[in-house]
């Protein structure tokens, strides 16, 4: 390609947008912007909550509280072995010899005489 032709082509390319029409965005831009703002506001509320919970000042005490509650619930649900076994043995021996029943019957009969 000769120099003049090349220069002309380059110049035409540089000026190719001179007579261009402006492009237009799709219709109802305002409606779409408002819809997007509503969507971002809704998402923003959840982001605020999670950001608040993620603060170390809130997160650590909350975690400690949950762990303490768990520990307390587990501790209170497990029976104390030493006390309950002793109680069980005394109950068994009382039932075997029917001590409580005999005593009460004897008392009743004695009282009737």
């Amino acid at each position: 390609m000769d120099k003049n032709k090349l220069d002309k082509l380059v110049e035409e390319t540089i000026n190719s947008m001179d007579a261009a029409d402006p492009a237009m965005p799709a219709p109802f831009l305002l409606t779409r912007i408002k819809a997007r703002m509503d969507l971002e506001n809704a998402a923003g509320a959840w982001e605020k909550v999670s950001a608040f919970l993620a603060k170390p000042l809130v997160a650590f005490p909350a975690l400690t509280l949950v762990l303490a509650l768990n520990f307390w619930i587990i501790k209170s649900s497990v029976p104390d072995n030493s006390v309950s076994n002793a109680a069980d043995y005394s109950k068994v021996s009382t039932d075997d010899y029917s001590l409580s029943t005999a005593t009460s019957l004897f008392d009743i009969e004695t009282a009737q005489r």
Binding site: I14, M17, P22
Partner: peptide, 19 residues
């Protein structure tokens, strides 16, 4: 391809944007 570019300049405009 710029939607506003004139039809006879479309190709040149594409080259311009690429450059």
């Amino acid at each position: 391809n710029h939607p506003g570019a004139q039809l006879d300049n479309k190709e040149k405009a594409a080259v311009l944007f690429r450059a």
